[in-house]
Design a protein around this nucleic acid. Sequence first.
DNA 1: GATAAAACATGATCGATCCTCACTTTTATA
DNA 2: TATAAAAGTGAGGATCGATCATGTTTTATC
Lengths: 207, 207
Amino acid sequence: MASEGATDGSLPRRQPVQKRSRERLRKILDVAAARIARNGSDQLRMSDVAEGAGISIGSLYQYFPDKSAIVRALAEHYNAQSRQCIEETLRDVATPAQLEVAYVDLLDQYFAMVRDEPVIRDIWSATQTDKQLMSLELTESRLCAALLADAMARAHGQNAKKYESTAFMIWQLGEAVVRLATSVDASESKAILEGFKRMTAREILRM
Amino acid sequence: MASEGATDGSLPRRQPVQKRSRERLRKILDVAAARIARNGSDQLRMSDVAEGAGISIGSLYQYFPDKSAIVRALAEHYNAQSRQCIEETLRDVATPAQLEVAYVDLLDQYFAMVRDEPVIRDIWSATQTDKQLMSLELTESRLCAALLADAMARAHGQNAKKYESTAFMIWQLGEAVVRLATSVDASESKAILEGFKRMTAREILRM
DNA sequence: GATAAAACATGATCGATCCTCACTTTTATA
DNA sequence: TATAAAAGTGAGGATCGATCATGTTTTATC
C-alpha cells in the first residue's frame, strides 16, 4: 500500500520480505480502515485489528510499532492517492480561465472524496492528538499548496514565490470548508461550497 | 464558573449547595485548565486532577460524570466569555464602515485570545473526538454567526436571513484560519491573517 | 537432506487508566 | 442531639495498549 519506501524509518516496524507477510500488512491496513470507518480512529482496538486480520496481537506489533503508526500509514496512503489527482488536475493549467476551472474541479473532487471516505475525516481528527501525524499532514498540505502556487504562477506569468502564502492559506481553508461541508446537511453544504468558491476564485485570479 | 444553569442536565453531576462544594467545583476546573494548558486535553489524568484539587477520585466523579464533561465545562466557560466580547463589538454596527472595523477587530481579538490561551486549542482538538462537545461548539458557532449576520443586515439595511449562510461560512473559516495562524511562525501568521481579512472583508461588505 | 539463521507468530502478562461502589464523614435542620 | 441529606473516600473491576519469552516456519548454504 503506502509506506513501501517510508521516509520515516519507524512506520512499518519490519520490511516484509515473505509473501505471506506482505499480504498480512495489506490485510492489517484494510481491516484498520474498515474499523475506523465504522467507529472512528479513537475506537480502533489493536485486539480487534489483530482478530480481523487473522493474526495475533504480538504479530500485529511486528508490523506496526504502535497504534498511531497504523493511522499514519493510512494517512500516507490517502495522501499519495489524492496528490496524484491534484497533480493531474493542475498540470496543464496555463491561463487564468483554466486555473479557475481546475480549482473549482479540485474542490468538488475533494469534497466528494471526503464525503464518501469517512476514514479521511477520522484521520484528520487523529491529527489533533498525534504530533507526528500533524506534521506529516502539514508537510503534505504545503506540498499541495506549492502545486497550486505553481499553477497560479503559470496562469499569470509570474513567479510562484509571489503566490506561496496565499496558496497555502487557501489550501488550508479549502480543507476546513470541505470538512465543514461534510458535517452539515446537503443543501447547506452546497451553499457553503459555492460561497467559498466565489470568494476564493476571485482571490486566486488576482494577478 | 460556567454551567451553573447548564442546559445539558449531565454536566455537573451534582448541583453543589454547600460553600465548600462550590469552591471545589471551581478548583477542579482551575486545575484541569492548568493541566490541559501544560500537556493537552488527551494527557489529562483524572487522578492528577483529583490530586491537584486536593480531593479523592470518587469525589471528583461526584462533580463530573466523566472526563469529557470537565472539558465541556471549560468549553462553556470560554464560550460565554468570548460571546460577550463578540456581542459588545458588533452591537453598535450600523454602517458598512463600522462593520468592517468591527469585523477586523474581532479577528484580531480572537487570534490574540487563542494565541494566549493554549487551553482553547486543546478544547478545540477534543471537539474532534467528543460528539457532545462538537455539537456544543457547532451551536455556539451558529449563534455567533447569527450575530455577525445581524450586524451585516443592519449595515446594509437588509434582512439578516440573506446573510445567514455566508456569515456561518465565514465564521467557521475564521476559526480555522486563526487555528492555522497560531500554529505557524509569527511572520507567516501575519500574512495569513491579512490575506484572510482582505478576502473576507470584501465578501462581508457585499450587499 | 541436514543445518543454521532469519523471518514470522503466539498469547499470557504487565502497567496505565477510567470509573464504580460500598462505605464513612460532614453539614444542615428540626 | 437526632436524623437525613450532602459530600467524601479509595480499593478494586474492567479495558486496553504494549511487551517479551518462547515457539514455528521459511530461506539460504553446504
